[in-house]
Design a protein around this nucleic acid. Structure first.
Lengths: 112, 112
DNA sequence: AATTTGTGCAACCAAAAGGTTCCATATATA
DNA sequence: TATATATGGAACCTTTTGGTTGCACAAATT
């Protein structure tokens, strides 16, 4: 199934999983052991994370090692930064406006 | 209800709404007019967006103007950047490793 | 005053999400 | 070989999500 990174990181457990395996790759059981839900629940979260490329899994004997692919967060980063830019511009415009006001005050302002 | 910004931006329609009103604040009907779902559906999306602070609404006569609060995306930005840093460090470590390899080759390497 | 416009919200619905238990199966290990 | 371990996944359940229609009501317009 085609999965969306935005939807994948919407769940707090999945964000925790990413935080966990970003420090060290772990097998499925080790990941599950860190949470108080069933292994199957974690397995499903891992499945969603792999489906959108945020996690890749390598078989090693009978274990499957989960590794975080943090570069996939770029999709989120790009979207957010686009709007951060808009936000910063708004602040800049406000700045410019305030400065303009100051200049007007100097020219036409009344002195107390 | 306490809402989560991550969950709010998980839905593509809500991301579109943010994109739309980030350029220009609009009343509820104008926002709804841009999508092919019902006004009520958009109203619900706007409700979720206001509940997590990504949108604020100001009454003006019988209209309610929806304004984007892009600074609220910082929560997402912070989280993502934390892992981007981890990712960059991994790349740096790889770089350092490759450079080290090169040096070893210079010292002990065989010449063809 | 009557009508149109903009909005909120209840009631309802189908599908998806997030969880569970239980079983199958492959790989290590005693 | 028998047993323990690591995992995949089916079947099921409850809650949440994203949508609908329909009605109420206040503000603007005629």
């Amino acid at each position: 199934m085609r999965r969306d990174v935005f939807q994948a990181i919407a769940d707090p457990t999945r964000r925790e999983i990413i935080g966990l395996i970003s420090r060290q790759s772990l097998n499925v059981n080790s990941v599950a052991g860190k949470f108080d839900v069933s292994r199957t629940a974690i397995y499903k979260h891992l499945k969603i994370l792999t489906e959108c490329g945020l996690v890749i899994i390598n078989q090693q004997g009978r274990e499957r090692i989960c590794e975080a692919r943090l570069d996939k967060l770029n999709e989120v980063s790009d979207w957010v930064e686009k709007y951060r830019k808009v936000w910063t511009e708004k602040l800049d415009n406000l700045d410019a406006y305030l400065i303009e006001l100051q200049h007007k005050n100097k020219k036409h302002g009344k002195h107390k």
